[in-house]
Computed example of a mutant assay.
Amino acid sequence: MTNFKKITEEASNHNDLEKMDTLSILQNMNKEDEKVAKAVALTIPQISTLVDGLAERFNKGGRLFYIGAGTSGRLGILDASEIPPTFGMPFDRVIGLIAGGDSAIRKAVENAEDNKEQAWKDLLAHNISENDVVVGIAASGTTPYVIGGVQEAKKKGLLTACITNNPGSPLSQAVDIPIEINVGPEFLTGSTRMKSGTSQKLALNMISTTLMIKIGRVKGNKMVNMQLTNNKLVDRGTRYLIEELQLNYEDAEAALIKYGSVKKAIDALK
């Protein structure tokens, strides 16, 4: 670990922020943000390996667990919470866990991330099994809660991965598939809710969306399994059916409501 350097703690490339006018602050922040997608692009081979391993286990009934603390934990929970409405999956197939429990989603829980044993206890509460996959998220790559969780998961034979912004970190060394996104120092020194958090969100979008495509939850480019929880989504689903089945609006809407999803309506009527 002697070569490990915390890039996320290095001084910003910009100084005297308080002396900048508003426009300069925003322009300089945006210049830093431009680096994020390019940094994520360099990790696509590792993300691909993770998704393929995930799909294989998902098709055997496995689940995807994200574990993290602070911003990283919240981003994992955000991604997990969007899977049921977007893809019609049960809520317990992609699960986000945060150090300190659900109360930490809104309010920081002191010292929660420093407990190295707690993540595995949190995973055990979900009857973790060998077909499950655990992805640890930590910008620093040094969060004890996350490292302890993935280490124990790997010992038990689960596939493990991480998303971190410090290459060569202890977290990277602890997993099967390290996704190391080097976005450089933050605009506001050490504030990993910024570029680091943005890069994590991009990676999470890629992981979960590609997984859902590979297991058949998407048709063409449409969310054909989305939950019809409001008028906007019913209208969207109706238009999908019009396009796919050449129905008029009223018949398409009636079919959608009858069958409960775009996919079921297509399967029944095509």
Rank of each mutant, 00 (worst) to 15 (best):
G101A: 09
D102I: 09
S103C: 04
S103I: 15
A104N: 10
A104H: 07
A104P: 08
A104E: 05
R106C: 03
K107D: 07
K107W: 02
A108T: 13
A108P: 11
V109A: 13
E110N: 14
E110Y: 09
N111I: 05
A112K: 09
A112E: 11
A112G: 09
E113G: 08
E113I: 08
D114W: 15
K116F: 02
K116H: 10
K116S: 15
Q118S: 13
Q118P: 01
W120L: 05
W120I: 08
D122S: 13
D122W: 02
L123R: 14
L123Y: 11
L124H: 12
A125K: 15
H126A: 08
N127W: 03
N127Q: 15
N127E: 15
N127F: 06
I128L: 06
I128P: 01
S129Y: 03
S129W: 00
S129N: 13
S129G: 09
E130N: 13
E130G: 03
N131D: 15
N131P: 07
N131E: 14
N131M: 00
N131Y: 09
D132K: 00
D132L: 03
V134P: 03
V135M: 04
V135W: 00
V135Y: 05
V135S: 09
G136D: 10
I137Y: 03
A138N: 02
A139P: 00
A139D: 13
G141R: 00
G141L: 00
T142H: 10
T143L: 12
T143M: 06
P144E: 06
Y145P: 00
I147T: 03
G148Y: 13
V150S: 05
V150C: 10
E152A: 14
A153C: 10
A153L: 03
K154P: 00
K155A: 12
K155Q: 15
K155Y: 02
K156C: 10
K156S: 11
G157L: 10
G157E: 13
L158F: 11
L158Q: 15
L158Y: 09
L158E: 07
L158T: 01
L159V: 06
T160D: 05
A161K: 01
C162S: 15
C162G: 14
I163S: 02
T164E: 09
T164P: 00
N166R: 02
N166K: 11
P167A: 09
G168E: 06
G168L: 01
G168R: 08
S169N: 10
S172F: 00
Q173I: 01
Q173P: 01
A174I: 06
A174D: 08
A174V: 08
V175D: 04
V175M: 07
D176N: 14
D176C: 11
D176H: 10
I177H: 03
P178C: 11
P178Y: 12
P178D: 10
I179H: 06
I179R: 02
E180H: 05
I181L: 01
N182Q: 14
